[in-house]
Each structure stands twice: as structure tokens, then as C-alpha cells.
Amino acid sequence: MNAVQENLNQTIKMEDLADDVENDSKQRKAFFLKTFSFLSPLFLLLLWEALAALKLIDVRLFSSPSRIFETFVPLVASGELLYHTLISTSRIISGFIVGAVPGVILGLSMGLFPPVRALLMPLVAVTFPIPKLAIMPLILIVFGLGESSKIFTIAIGVFYLVLINTMAGVLNIDPIYIDVAKSFSASKIQFYTTVAFPGALPMIFAGLKLGMGTALLLIVAAELSAARAGVGWMIWRAYDMFDIERMFCALIVLAFLGYIFSYLLDIIEKIVIPWKNYQ
């Protein structure tokens, strides 16, 4: 091949490339990516099933997709799974709200008012690192075995994450925005509503999302003790009975709940913060 021909090939390739960019190749790429992310779990399931069928893994320990499915269907049909899911969901949502609302309020005030920060920061700094699971027994003693202890366990985990992120959100507002408000002689209240709060919103949402992750973690622990229903309870119960399939069904529900909640938070975020550059 001589140099001219090579050059010609080069040109053609470049044109292809240019065409690609214009011809909504972006959409095609997105489609492929979506297919990939759909195929990968499917592939894993098939592999799992195959390994189980070939007796390469112990189905008593690891079960198999088909066995789990066989347990899953009646659990759904009888409404049992839905019952436990709803109970856990209501605990998660209650705990989330009970933790997030004071977290936002305190976080804003700690970010905005140095005296409040000076007063509370040592307390927060000392108590935040305590694993929330470690105080569960204390919560049980104080709140008893009823609903409130479970809600409080979740709330306390959510609270810290929301609080700390909200405070950081306020403290990290670009000083230039504060200068703009000052230069137009905004009053304190005007400053809070037009700069501090909207400026902290992205971090508040980051805190809410982290808090939701923790809530899912804590629901399982909270339902370990003194619960008679809930997805977490199902898991522990299945553990007692060595019912691996049931355990997997509960895990599937938890994964599903996690997905739904983070999806909902994403939607709410897009409504509340339409000005953020998503993508």
C-alpha cells in the first residue's frame, strides 16, 4: 500500500467518525450502554443457575435463582411479602422524616450561626463516630420494644448524616455569593432565604441520600430485636429456620426498596433543584 492510499483510508475513517458524531451516535451509545447494564445481571443469574445445576455450588447455602423464584411467587401471591414490605417501608419513612427534619434545621442553624456551632459542634463531633448499632440496646431500654425504638434507631442514623451535610453545605457556599448579597445590602433574613438555603440545597440532598442508605442498613438491625414483622425480621426469621430462599426473597425486597427510595429522592431533587446541572 503506498502512502497516498494510506492517506485516503485515513480520510475515510475521519469522515466516518464525523458522521458518527452527527448521526445521533450518542443515542446509539446510550442504547448499547443500557443493554449492557441490563445484560450483566442477567448473565450473572444464568451463571448462578448453571453453577447450581452443575452442583458446583452448594444449593443449601447459596440456593439458585429458580429455587428463589419458586419461593418468591407464593410469598407475593399470599400478600405476605407485601405485608412485611409495607411495615418496613413505613418504619423507614417515619424514621427518615424524624431524623431528616431536625437534621436540616439544626444543620442550617449550625452553619449560619457561629455561637450555635460553637455550642453544638463538640457534642456532634463526639457522638457522631459512635456506631449507631452500638446504641441500639440503649434505645431499646429507653423507648421500649414498640415501634418507636425502631423508628428512633433509623432516625438517629439519618439525623447525623443530614446534619453534617447541611452544615457543610452552608459553610461551603462560595463567598462571592455572600458578597453579592451584602453589596446589595440584603437583610439577614433575606440572606438566609435567597443565598444560604438555596446554596446549601445540593449538599442537603447529598445528606438525604446518604441518610436513606443508612436507613436501609438500620432497618434490618432494628427489626432484629423485638419485632414481629418487617423485611428485616423476615431475614432474621429465615436465619433461625435456615430458610435460605426466604432470606433471598427478603434481600430482593430490600434491594428493590433501596432502588425505589433513591429514585424518588432523585426525582424530588430534580424538582426542588431545577438549577443544578444534571447529567
Binding site: I176, Y177, D179, V180, S183, F184, V195, G199, W275
Partner: peptide, 17 residues
Amino acid sequence: PITAVVFQGDAVFPWMK
């Protein structure tokens, strides 16, 4: 106001239209 400032750098509030 007596003064108004056009700042050095990006000072437009991103959360406002």
C-alpha cells in the same frame, strides 16, 4: 443603593433564573 458591584469572577446566583 449608592453602589453596585460587578464582581471579578462568576457571581451570578446559579439557583436563580
